[in-house]
Design a protein around this nucleic acid. Structure first.
Lengths: 207, 207
DNA sequence: AATCCCCTGTACCGCCGGTACGGTTTTCGT
DNA sequence: ACGAAAACCGTACCGGCGGTACAGGGGATT
């Protein structure tokens, strides 16, 4: 019962790397079983079909993603009481983490799925949607705390502001992948950080 | 000589819509010829293989994309002399244009390609990279003009600021597709507009 | 009338996703 | 130590798809 999980995990590991580099359609099951060292029968024992693999892959990715965000922002929360400073610190920690990835960010499965919509059933699309909504709730919560203490210097919808964090991450991944500049993603996160800082911090009064 | 171009264009139209919904790997040539009403031989007369189709598709997409940006920002440039106001107006026009798309933005081929890297030759990847660099140059030029007149209120790398525009567009497309909220993309562009406004406009001095 | 361009038709290859199903080993609770 | 369930392996097969090859045909241009 535990060995099964281990094999399953190995398949998912191989599949995730392949899918992020070639998309779902570009990833063949045969190549997965070749690299995993398993047979076709073995593969289909763990996953009914490619759709089931996709779903498992996506769910695992999302879980892992959430865990990372939890860690980063709870660590940032421990280091300061001010919600704004905590958020800005979180973005800095996130940028550092992204910057330390040796080959840059491998890509986001959520983006992969949404550029593949018609190939998957509604189930997967719904999972994907829920993941993005979870991001929205997460960052919205942080901005709500910030807004108790600080007033935004521009009128802004809080959900749209929350989505901006996800937007910058997704867009940053695309750019850094297209340019083959791994550092690009972390840079964009830091630009967002500057923007958020500007939005909430009281202006420096010039004389 | 003209009939050939027409058929070629029809294939590209069908292929673009299909690729943006299902990715390259998920789009079969057979389905393209079925919808175009052409035979397989006819298809391969126009495109040597799927890679050639991808390249033609990408190049056409990029050209069209550039044309749209040219139009929007030159229109904005005509309406005001101030480079900052012109840029902010351009973003507003862009948001309006994106907002008017009936089914939301269909997706960006540049993003599709960069989530498919390993399937294409270096040629296509290089074309993709050049497209993103062209965006960078375009927006960098605008920010340079702005910075002649305005001083940013936060220290910022101009290339990273320029990339932020592309980042928000790419990220916004991903989010609005994943959430199936067509309006999301335009909203994110307007959030970026607020940020740029904040960055360059002199602070409101409170007493 | 000859010559391109722009296709059609047919036949074929090999890879891949997926199914089916029988058999075998490994693991674990008891 | 044993039986049963879990975790595979082997083989055979199907249809779809990307791609190749090649022969030919109609229509416009020269």
């Amino acid at each position: 019962m535990r060995k099964g999980e281990e094999t399953r995990t190995r398949i998912l590991d191989v599949a995730e790397a392949a899918v992020l580099q070639k998309g779902f359609g570009g990833t063949s099951i045969e190549e997965l079983i070749a690299e995993t060292g398993i047979t076709k029968s073995g593969f289909f024992y763990h996953f009914r079909d490619k759709n089931a693999l996709a779903k498992a892959l996506l769910e695992r990715y999302i879980e892992n993603d959430e865990r990372i965000y939890d860690e980063i922002f709870s660590r940032a929360r421990e280091l300061t009481d001010d919600p704004l400073q905590s958020f800005l610190l979180g973005l800095k920690l996130l940028a550092e983490l992204l910057s330390d990835l040796p080959n840059g960010h491998p890509g986001c499965l959520v983006a992969t799925v949404c550029y593949y919509e018609r190939l998957f059933d509604r189930d997967i699309q719904e999972t994907n949607k829920q993941a993005v909504l979870a991001w929205r709730r997460r960052f919205r919560g942080m901005f709500e705390e910030i807004m108790v203490v600080y007033t935004p210097r521009e009128p802004i919808e809080i959900d749209q502001l929350a989505d901006m964090v996800s937007t910058v991450l997704e867009g940053g991944i695309v750019l850094s992948k297209a340019l083959k500049e791994p550092q690009g993603l972390a840079d964009q996160v830091l630009v967002l950080r500057s923007f958020v800082k500007l939005l909430f911090q009281p202006p420096i009064v010039r004389q």
